[in-house]
Design a protein around this nucleic acid. Structure first.
Lengths: 215, 215
DNA sequence: GTCTATATACCGATAGAC
DNA sequence: GTCTATCGGTATATAGAC
């Protein structure tokens, strides 16, 4: 805010948040060590407290900050496409890119889901609700245009997001699993987004009315 | 093993593992406190170490023990149905029941995915590979019978499992989300399994060859 | 087998010098 | 704004009496 806040200070804060996101993502809130985060950020522990406050505040800040950088791209994605199907594809792709450019958000959110959202601030829920509304509109538009069958919008949205997040985050485990089962596991983010899009678009498609046929 | 191992001892061990599963599921490995687990198990902390060993060993034991109780039902589910579609439905339903009868497995696995499987023992991977092989066979059978389109079996399997686990675990967050967005969020496990099954079965269906049409 | 008491280490947070 | 030193609390793990 103030012009007194130097570039270095903003940089220090950014480095702290980046390091914290990394640690929270890999070991969770309980497993994270402030000393570890400070060291990775290349900053003194006392300075970390000076800049962002205590551990809980640090976590909330990381959460908001991390999601803020990516959410715009999602709503934006729905606008550069016309048909509901294309919009859904764009959302999935934007989601893949969000996971790529911001690799710590997904593990953090998976942990939040695992804990039932115990440490998920309302501020975050409001942003998630915004994303849901965007997806919901696309789904409703698709139903109105007769290309999507009607489904529970919340369940469909959560399935979509959850499936994509799970696929992205499970890459290391898929690699080990594929090694045991003897199948290929090297998939790009684009592969994952495309697989998910194909699955869900076909899954949402209306039944093609057959010209004839008993069903 | 030995007849000297009393019922009480087995009971104590079971109580420890149950309490540990609960705590690990809700706060993760790093957030779990041995004192907390011992107290919930109604046992002295020193006895906990006596029975199962240190924290890491306790975690691994919980993991194997928790999954062992549920995996049989999954492979069993594929045998009480004939067609690939019905088998897939049965798998999803068995998965829902697994989540219900064993509510701590899903959060624990979500955390494992979040950490890239950092603490996931090989013993667990082998069991997961067994489930994958079962699903893979169903998918391949479906393709051979001409009811499923060919997909990457590992991605489809992970999508299926991930989607279902995410839906089940996200219930508390869905409730908060639905409150903000003003939509209904009360879904039974059966609702979730059915929604997922409908989505995936339609998503895997072969294209109905149209009699005419430009595409 | 059971429990108390404690060793040992670590972690979050801050006081205070510069 | 920056860093050292440290306080106070708590965690895992075990020793040892019974």
């Amino acid at each position: 805010m103030s012009p007194k806040k130097s570039i270095d200070e903003a940089d220090a804060r950014a480095r702290i948040l980046a390091a914290a996101a990394e640690v929270f993502a890999s070991v969770g809130f309980g497993g994270a060590r402030i000393d570890d985060i400070a060291e990775r950020a290349g900053i003194n522990k006392a300075m970390l407290y000076y800049h962002v406050g205590d551990k809980e505040r640090l976590y909330a800040t990381v959460l908001i900050n991390t999601v803020e950088r990516g959410l715009a791209s999602l709503t934006e994605a729905t606008q550069k496409a016309k048909t509901p199907s294309d919009k859904l594809r764009c959302i999935l792709e934007a989601f893949g890119e969000l996971g790529a450019s911001n690799p710590h958000l997904i593990p953090i959110m998976l942990r939040e889901v695992a804990s039932g959202g115990a440490t998920l601030p309302d501020e975050m829920l409001i942003r998630m609700a915004g994303v849901f509304r965007t997806v919901q509109e696309v789904l409703l538009q698709g139903v109105k245009e007769g290309v999507f069958r009607p489904t529970d919008p919340l369940l469909t949205h959560v399935s979509l997001v959850g499936c994509m997040m799970f696929l992205v985050a499970s890459r290391p485990i898929r690699a080990r699993l594929g090694k045991i089962a003897g199948v290929e596991t090297q998939h790009s983010l684009r592969d994952l987004a495309e697989h998910t899009a194909n699955l869900f678009l076909k899954g949402l498609e209306v039944e093609q009315p057959k010209k004839r046929g008993k069903k």
